[in-house]
Amino acid sequence: MNCQPHWIRPVDIWLFNNQTCLLCDEAIESALPICSACELELPWLGESCQRCALPLPLPMSGLICGHCLKQPPAFEQVHAAWAYDFPVDSLIVRFKHNSKWPYGRLLAELLGQCLLDRFNCGQERPDFLLPVPLSVQRLRQRGYNQAAMLCHWLSAQLSIPRCEHWLLRTRDTPAQQALGAKIRKRNLLQAFALAPGTQVKGLYLALVDDVLTTGATAESLARLLLNAGARRVDVYCLARTPKPEGAP
């Protein structure tokens, strides 16, 4: 008597199963789970600040925004694929808060393609990728760090090593989404530290996160790394939020 399950039929079904687009559910044959029409309609980041990736109107293309001119950030450059708009904003929220990991994986793959194009055009590759850390309390509540997952996928696609434990969040802070820039900066004072024994002197590092809003988190981490001797710090993120209404 053979009590082993019969796997031939399920494997056969899986091998010949047609993949569908995660956004419109249409059948596709591409390697990524998104059809060409939906990919084209994503809110790709167009003209933006050369430093912080803030979306800019067309007449200001190729320039640096006023805020970066007045107060240059510690990070050198932000690489974001999209403006934080529909449907990317919805996909990120589902990935970040509802454990819909396929959405995060899809966006990471598309961002990785953009970064590979930059590298092929002569952009220098960073030495290591570092995910923005979560506090222990927030990690226990959510069960995973979305930035660490993005970092893992990008590391494999870009062939750049990642170091998930170099950066520590030493103090839990309130959720940043609804806070202004000044309050965010105040919240993040002494919120991060380098893990004991971490050596970053002379390294070119890239921080990985899902969304850049005011840049307060990236600024705090980049300043920490530069003070420790890092040569350069960039930011890789899925999306960049536009300038808030009424902001100077």
Score class of each variant (00 low, 15 high):
residue 90 S to I: 00
residue 188 L to T: 02
residue 31 A to C: 12
residue 161 P to L: 14
residue 19 Q to V: 13
residue 47 E to V: 02
residue 180 G to L: 05
residue 34 I to A: 07
residue 201 K to C: 05
residue 237 C to P: 09
residue 116 L to M: 13
residue 233 V to S: 05
residue 102 P to D: 13
residue 142 R to H: 06
residue 98 N to H: 15
residue 244 P to M: 12
residue 212 L to W: 01
residue 231 R to V: 10
residue 40 L to C: 11
residue 4 Q to D: 09
residue 63 L to W: 03
residue 115 L to R: 10
residue 125 R to G: 08
residue 223 R to V: 01
residue 64 I to R: 04
residue 170 T to I: 15
residue 173 T to N: 06
residue 242 P to M: 04
residue 244 P to Q: 11
residue 54 L to V: 08
residue 93 V to Q: 15
residue 221 L to T: 07
residue 56 L to M: 11
residue 151 C to E: 12
residue 211 V to Y: 06
residue 157 Q to P: 07
residue 17 N to H: 14
residue 246 G to S: 01
residue 46 G to Y: 05
residue 189 L to V: 14
residue 57 P to Q: 08
residue 50 Q to D: 08
residue 29 E to G: 14
residue 194 L to T: 11
residue 34 I to R: 03
residue 144 Y to M: 12
residue 86 F to W: 13
residue 122 G to N: 08
residue 233 V to F: 03
residue 85 D to P: 01
residue 48 S to A: 15
residue 19 Q to K: 15
residue 116 L to V: 02
residue 116 L to Y: 02
residue 115 L to P: 09
residue 87 P to W: 03
residue 4 Q to K: 12
residue 214 T to M: 01
residue 175 A to D: 14
residue 202 G to C: 08
residue 113 Q to A: 11
residue 81 A to M: 02
residue 230 A to Y: 03
residue 174 P to M: 11
residue 67 H to W: 00
